[in-house]
Design a protein around this nucleic acid. Sequence first.
DNA 1: TTGAAAGCGGTACCAT
DNA 2: ATGGTACCGCTTTCAA
Lengths: 355, 355
Amino acid sequence: MTTHLQKPGHLETPGDLEETGRPDETGRVTLADVAEAAGVSEITVSRVVRGLANVSPATVFKVEEAIARTGYLRNRLAGAMAGAVSNQIAVILPSLSNSVFADVLNGLEVRLQSAGFHSVLGISNYDSDRETKLIESLLGWRPAGLVIAPTELSQRALQLLRRVRVPTVEVMDIDRDPLDMVVGISHRQAGKALAYYLIGRGYRSFGYVGHDIESDHRAAIRRDGFRAALCENGLDFETEATAAAVSSVPLGRELTAGLLGQGAPRLLYFSNDDMAMGGLFEAMARGLQVPRDLAIAGFNGLQIGQSAPVALTTVESHRALIGQRAADQLLARFAGQAVDRRIDVGFTLLPGASA
Amino acid sequence: MTTHLQKPGHLETPGDLEETGRPDETGRVTLADVAEAAGVSEITVSRVVRGLANVSPATVFKVEEAIARTGYLRNRLAGAMAGAVSNQIAVILPSLSNSVFADVLNGLEVRLQSAGFHSVLGISNYDSDRETKLIESLLGWRPAGLVIAPTELSQRALQLLRRVRVPTVEVMDIDRDPLDMVVGISHRQAGKALAYYLIGRGYRSFGYVGHDIESDHRAAIRRDGFRAALCENGLDFETEATAAAVSSVPLGRELTAGLLGQGAPRLLYFSNDDMAMGGLFEAMARGLQVPRDLAIAGFNGLQIGQSAPVALTTVESHRALIGQRAADQLLARFAGQAVDRRIDVGFTLLPGASA
DNA sequence: TTGAAAGCGGTACCAT
DNA sequence: ATGGTACCGCTTTCAA
């Protein structure tokens, strides 16, 4: 073995005293070191490390002992380079400040982790350029799969994805045609279903309170669906209060406060549950009775909304399930199974008490 | 170039029609292909790709044109193998269902992403064995750094970390001595500070409502700190309601309901804001006046608590900041700068109105 | 069940 | 500013 420079920040130590089977000049323990320590070939050690079946128990024992003695740590970089499939999955989400995507990521991790995969994360911040850069950078690691909650896939992004042909799952929104696979719900239908329900409950006067819909196109689609259902019944939003900011409880509260000053409609439809909780809090703070004085509806089915003194009327979007199913799709594909291109996990109307 | 099998799920296509500079039998475009297309050497292309300065503008132009024409996609696996530092940072968190860690991750991503790094995620689920496995698996990718919110580092985990010598930041809790660097707050002091404040406000009757403290040792430390401050004043918790479950709003509500049946103490200290919101909701649902009939205090300073009709009395734990500072520590270390081993981001008492 | 040889696609080092 | 050469550490293929 020739000498070579240590990588910055990666100086593996020879190990303390007793566990120094083959100290080695550089301090790094490789497959070759373990092989020598165990008296077998490199490839045999490799087989043991990867848990392949065709190694005799006696050899496995010798090798495992040598691994422990030398303090060998598998190098997946070299493995992936040599042609083994990566256990990394690129995951691109628009945001992490919104708990919605944290939920999706959580669902993903549950499944991926138990199958031995890791997520490599990118946050696009609802920015198409950043999204493109992230795709390029993450694909450079040759991940086994890609999960993306797309913002607006650029031409370059589409080109990259077509070229690399990595198994890809688009998540959240099934209203558009997928590149490869898609898991989510129809946000348009979710918006419509809620409107139908509310109309059925007798509401006829509606207002909309929303966050930045320019970047969050799924929220825009929900609103469109909601409005379409209103139109079918000869109705429309009487007022809309929106702000070009990310959704949050205080924003919902603030916009609601603005509306309440000027004779608000009977029911306010919020762009999501965070915003709706703000509306609910504002109503409570003013001593209004919900839903008698003001009815409120949201979207997502966040747990906190269901635990509020007046449970939120909303639509459960099964976010963790979306993550899990997305992971399942990838895993099935890896296993060579045929999979559906499109999975609709469905939504659930939560009647609540706020409308 | 010899023939070789395509990796499953990674068949890079030759590119469509016009952009096929060098189709290549396997469909993969390598540095060599770009070099040939540009009429320069591989190493020159490599320099351009990495944005190194010592290449003439004319050459850069030629190479970039060749890259676009061939549809080359950088292979970071090979780069990292050959000795370039990885742009991956291993991140191990106990949970993602709790928004606290999503906030930390968000803070990390903000900084890491803008410096060109990616997080590779592992969720330990508050399980020491899983944590150890994750460390081993993630370190196998030879990340440039590691950020971990430790659960309980096993002997094997410590051995691995010492051996690999990857720059490591422990986050959340600075009450213990760090392996390498640590960024967070003293949860013990946070608990104490809140208790002092409440005692100063005249409260003398306290109860504790908590989630599974076996696994969430930081919550346990806060409670210990709080109690220590009580003891200094000859006080103690009059009652404790705990459950061996993860923290959640409904759990907080349920445990509070249990306590309120039996003449609850004057003030309830909750293990965190999720739990406290549950308490607040239960009080509101019963028509109790907060803080007149029941005072409530939490921990974390979640935004929603501050937007509630009665703003939550709590301690802001600056989670996103912890993530950012952790990233900064790593980046500074990569830049060869000397860094503090311990960074206390501090906490902020939010007086609120619930106590 | 085990092993030998040939890369995988880059980058570091040292020249020029 | 540019290039030649020698690996990085592992897994694949083929043979025994």
